[in-house]
Structure formats: C-alpha cells, structure tokens
Design a protein around this nucleic acid. Structure first.
Length: 415
RNA sequence: CGGGGCAUAGUGCAAUUGGUAGCACGAGUCCUUUGGGAGGAUUUAGUCCCAGUUCGAGUCUGGGUGCCCCGACCA
C-alpha cells in the first residue's frame, strides 16, 4: 500500500479528555474514529489490525474443533424469556420493537440462540460433543463506556459454544479451550492470567476470566507469582500479602483488563431449551454447555496498552497492520525513488505486507516520527546516505539500533 | 442511575468586570529545505442547539443535546 493513498490522517495532538494510552495512540495514528460514546469506526489501519486479531482467533478456534457460524443480531423476545434473561439482563440488553410492535433484543451474547440452533440437531450421544463459534457484533447497553475501545456499547466478539454429553467430556474440553485462549493471547503479544471470578448473569458457578495485567485495568486481580493461583478481587478471600492457599508464597495484587472469559454453563440453557439427548443406555439426559468469549476491540486496545513507548505503538508482528514500513527519505531524488519502488515491488512479490511512505514534500523527521507512531515492526529506510553505499537501513520498532544491509541482500532478509 | 467536569476554525487551545473572537497545528498556492514532527510569503475556516436578560452575549439565566472522568455493571 502506498501511504499517499492510505485513508488516514495522523494527529500530533490529543484532546485532553482522552486518557487511556491505547485510546490516545489509536486516535493519533487514526486507527479509529469516534461516532459517539462507546461507538467507534475502524478506519483502514485499525481494521487491518482487527482482521489480524480475528484471524489469529479463528485459527485457534478451528484447531480445537470449533466450526464457524453466523447467528443474527436481532433476537425475538421469546428466546430471552425462555432463559429468563429478558428481565435479568436488563441492562445490558438493548430492547426494541419492530413495526408490528413485536419485541426484540439486540444480541449481547448468544447462549439462547445457540441452544435453539443445537436443538433438533442433537438426538443421541453420537451427536456430541461439538463446538460452534462466530465472530460477530455484540450490543451492550452498559451504564458507562470508557477508555476508547476498552469498553464500548457495540463490539465484535468471538463467541464459542461447546456441547457435551457428560461432565468429564466437558471438563476436558474446557481445559483445552482455556489453553487455546492463552495461546491466542500469546500470539497477540499478551501474557494473560487465568483468573477465577464470579459467574455474573451467565451461571451461578465460578467462571474463568483471562486478565492482562496492566495498571489501566478495571478489574483487580489477586494472584500468586509462583503458581497458578489467581482470583478476581470480587471473590477472593485473600488479599495482597497473604499466603497463597496453594503454595504459601506471598500474594500479589494488580489491575487487569478482562480480555476473555469462559463460562461453564452446566445445564442452565439446555433446561430452558429442552436440549436433551439419549445416552448409551437409552436414557434421556440434558446436554452440558459452556461458552467462551473474546472481545476483539478490547483485545486490540489491550495490545496497545502493553506494547507502546513514548513515540507510539509497537505492534507485535502477528497483529500489525503491515509487516514492513518502507520509507524513502527524499522523494525528489529520482534515484532514491526508483530504488525504493523496486524494493517495494520486490517485497510485494514476496507477499510481504508493506506500507510504502511515498509522500512527497514531507520532512524526514516527520516521516520517522509517524513511522514510530504507527508501530509497524520493521522499518526499511532509503536515503542518499544509504544509497551511496548501495544499502538500506532496517530497524525493528522495538529495538534501538538499526542495521545496514546491502540492497541485494534484502531479498534474503528474514523478517 | 448518583457525583464531578467540559462544549469556541478540520484538529488542539486562548479570549480579564458582558464591549472588534485570537494563537498553534492542519489544509491550499509559490519559493527554499530533506536522517528526527523544516523556514519564509500568502490564502483558508469558528462560538453545539433553542429561548431569555441586555444598547451589546463565547462570557449571564433557563431548557435541550452531546462528550469525558469517578462510582455501581461488563468482553
């Protein structure tokens, strides 16, 4: 992509009421545009990142047997009445009427709809287990929206639902899914902590949250640095400094952003939706369900919270909008332009995603500053200086020192 | 929903007791400049909405709309 054609407008200044660092940087780099409170448009750069993240999630979901589907966002009231959540989720359920005065909800989660889809497709134990997921917009009528993408009223969520014949099979899969989540977050550059928390409106039992520990988090996590013990402060019986109940080590406390959540649903929804199957002995039994959610926009903001410096964003490779940022420092110099164009085409041939800063009449300093802001992992720089040696300069965004390599060695460079 | 704050040019900010609405950035044109947000010349554009008080309102009053922050809820 030639940067002169890219739809974006980087900004030097940030409105004083934008506080979260991720919000500031995504605003300055023009990844997003605010429509209203808790409502954001993803501009080309932002959507590239968003797509990268969903691709990581999609790949990992398929690896654990998830099959992708797409359910409606508009839900007839009766489904939500069946589960009892028409009242209990109000808010955050958005409710509206159609032109026949029929009540609908905008989907904030899809346990009800998934249970409906599963019904009639599960007859015997032979039909189990299976898991379905979708990547789709959710609507939540929260009381407050904050921190840019960290909490919005409309956001894309990956939600996976698994269906099992017995407790044992459910537990096995639940752990596989939990591992898969940690892998997703790792690929996105985040070290997430699996934390026990309360069930909220989904289930009465415990749930597992995945928290990225960072000072801007809305949750507080009590955890052990030596073992796996971690609990949301809401339910923790221990406090900071207490001994870990599992290994005795002194417990730590930190803020966290909840970037994922998995819920053992038990038979709550299969009861509401008559989700039965016949087991080996011919006995009718309730299906055991679980659901697993990741908010993509929040994950994206969290990545920025974890990966930035004073100059801008430092995208992890897997989720960066481009892999290479190609800068030509003087577009008036024909030799530089020709050489850069050649490298640009060469990289494209190699299927390397490259953003080429071909803007004219822009000072070198401004190009460099903007490149740092956008946070693309590799910066390739061509100037009079490098060209005199038949070289280019390659700098990784998270390193201080650039390396200089000959232009003909570039085709062997491993990004 | 409770508490607090804010709304002025495309963006970020200013405007003393009510008295000609400024600055910076951006954008356009021309000249110079190209390794860390370049310089000069010139042009461009604005008081959230509706009422009220007043000779006169960005400023005061009432209402509305919107945004931000803290709390309770959430991926």
């Amino acid at each position: 992509m030639k940067q002169s054609q890219l739809f974006y407008k980087a900004k030097k200044q940030v409105p004083k009421d934008i506080e979260a660092i991720s919000h500031q940087l995504l605003y300055r780099g023009d990844f997003i545009d605010q429509l209203g409170s808790g409502l954001y448009s993803f501009l080309p750069l932002g959507w590239l990142v968003h797509k990268k993240i969903t691709q990581v999630i999609r790949e990992e979901m398929v690896k654990i047997g998830g099959q992708e589907v797409l359910l409606p966002s508009l839900h007839p009231k009766n489904l939500w009445e069946k589960s009892g959540r028409w009242e209990t989720m109000n808010p955050p359920l958005y409710k509206l009427k159609d032109s026949h005065k029929k009540d609908f909800a905008l989907g904030s989660t899809h346990e009800e709809i998934m249970a409906k889809v599963a019904k009639g497709r599960i007859n015997s134990y032979k039909d189990l287990p299976f898991s379905l997921f979708q990547i789709q917009t959710k609507f939540r009528n929260e009381l407050r929206y904050t921190g840019g993408l960290l909490r919005t009223r409309e956001f894309v969520m990956k939600d996976l639902y698994s269906f099992h014949a017995d407790e044992e099979d459910f537990k096995k899969y639940y752990e596989i899914a939990a591992k898969s989540y940690l892998k997703i977050f790792k690929r996105c550059g985040l070290n997430a902590v699996r934390v026990k928390a309360s069930g909220g409106d989904f289930t009465t039992a415990f749930t597992d949250e995945f928290q990225a520990l960072t000072p801007v988090g809305e949750d507080t996590v009590i955890y052990c640095s030596k073992c796996d013990f971690a609990q949301n402060k809401e339910i923790a019986k221990q406090k900071k400094g207490d001994n870990c109940p599992e290994c005795g080590n002194s417990l730590s406390q930190e803020k966290g952003i909840e970037i994922g959540n998995i819920f053992p649903l038990g038979t709550k929804y299969s009861e509401s939706f008559d989700l039965y199957f016949v087991d080996k002995n011919g006995k009718k039994k309730l299906v055991i369900m679980a659901s697993y959610g990741i908010g993509v926009g929040r994950l994206m903001a969290t990545i920025v919270e974890a990966h930035h410096d004073e100059k801008g964003i430092v995208w992890p490779k897997e989720v960066s909008p481009y892999l290479v940022h190609l800068l030509s420092l003087d577009m008036r110099d024909k030799k530089i332009v020709n050489e850069t164009e050649k490298i640009y085409k060469d990289l494209q041939k190699r299927k390397i995603e490259v953003l080429y800063d071909d803007k004219e009449d822009i000072s070198a300093g401004q190009k460099l500053a903007e490149s740092d802001l956008l946070g693309i992992p590799y910066r390739i720089l061509i100037s009079k200086k490098t060209l005199e040696q038949g070289s280019v300069e390659i700098k990784e965004r998270d390193k201080d020192k650039p390396q200089v390599i000959k232009i003909d060695e570039l085709s062997n460079f491993k990004f």
